[in-house]
Design a protein around this nucleic acid. Structure first.
Lengths: 216, 216
DNA sequence: CCAGTTTTTGTCGCATAGGAAACAACCGCG
DNA sequence: CGCGGTTGTTTCCTATGCGACAAAAACTGG
């Protein structure tokens, strides 16, 4: 096959590299100098005449200060099926577990990177929980109403009042208890590195990343 | 070098693949069946006796449903310097631009995946803006006080009252105007695929991904 | 239009990634 | 013990990625 078109199975990496280079107005030689990869090789990679090795690809990205993800993962995934979703107050889908009532917003958008929840805290003491809550990623909580005692591993409990917020590594065990008269209310936004692979929130709930018992 | 230890320049990819596999309790043959990569090859890759090609690596990750980033980018970055940050109401760092007042929370944690902001909307009509707001990633907005007219490209404007929320692709032009007596207040959480690479929020602001003029 | 220069592409040789199959190391289990 | 069955490793071989160098193309300015 001397030099014919080959498997473009490394979906358009070459094209993306070339695009990057032309944007920067660099020559192959310049890229070669910065990355240590031969310019002939670069040419072949850009034209997808070879299937670049991971090691070489990494050298290129490192040398050029490109986050390798940018070259590898072009799935600039826009979530489906639209690009916007509005949820009216108290009109989200409600899930209930023993200690929280979750109201999920924007459920009609799947593949979101973040999971927004309006939560009502029923628990009043840590003893109400069997175990820590724990899920991959990060979480942001802002108290909307009432008062919350926020417990987490490695840290002392902290009391959160309306308007206070906490941001934390959610793989660290955590739990919220209401310390006010009425059940406290808060907005929680979770980021899970894998969340956007899921179709919808219920999958997120049922994946075990969030412990929830029954929907209604 | 027949079969001696080679360049581990593809920093521990093999180790990470092996770890993944042993967690799942799968055999090389099973992985081979799902990925189409020969088990002998898998063995060599895991033991880092070869420098895997990108194409093969992708086949493996795709077949196993591993986000390739997870294998490539092991900086399982826990944000620094702690794992939790509490911000009291009205005690965040305030940035001001012509149409919004941003109060950023959890600023002491860098490399967060999400950027939480309490925003006060000053603008009252779309004409107050020179252009759409636009930044990579996704954004979730929940109205805390007052009333907001949410404008975005491709969609009709929508009025949001207290407790209403909107989730949208923030690369789509968008803007918020206050339609209530007093300036409206909302919480906004942005996810930017590159945010966590940044040291702190001001970098996010100054990167041009969010247009903000001066801090105070 | 044509040297002189820069930039890209092609050629060739060598090292090596990857697949098939043989081999080794472990298992119970009779 | 020995013997199928399973799992991981090594061997052998071919296909091919990569670098050095050469040829070709694309830009120069005069």
């Amino acid at each position: 096959m001397s030099q014919s078109k080959r498997q473009s199975s490394d979906n358009a990496i070459g094209a993306r590299l070339r695009e990057w280079r032309s944007e920067k107005g660099m020559t192959l030689a310049a890229v070669s100098a910065r990355t240590g990869v031969a310019s002939s090789t670069l040419s072949k990679i850009e034209n997808e005449l070879v299937s670049v090795s991971y090691y070489t690809l990494k050298r290129i990205c490192d040398g050029l200060d490109i986050p390798i993800e940018e070259i590898i993962n072009p799935d600039h995934k826009t979530f489906a099926p639209g690009r916007r979703a509005v949820t009216r107050a108290n009109e989200g889908t409600v899930f209930r577990c023993s200690q929280y009532v979750y109201e999920t917003h924007s459920t009609e958008l799947s593949r979101k990177e973040m999971i927004p929840l309006i939560m009502t805290v029923l628990a009043r003491t840590p003893d109400d929980f069997e175990d820590w809550n724990r899920h991959d990623g990060e979480e942001f909580i802002l108290v909307l109403d009432g008062e919350i005692d926020f417990y987490s591993e490695f840290y002392a409990p902290v009391k959160l009042k309306r308007g206070d917020s906490v941001y934390f590594d959610s793989s660290m065990g955590h739990m919220c208890c209401s310390s006010s008269e009425e059940p406290a209310k808060m907005v929680s936004v979770c980021y899970d590195p894998r969340a956007h692979q899921q179709q919808d929130v219920s999958e997120f709930f049922s994946s075990g990343r969030l412990t929830v018992v029954r929907a209604e």
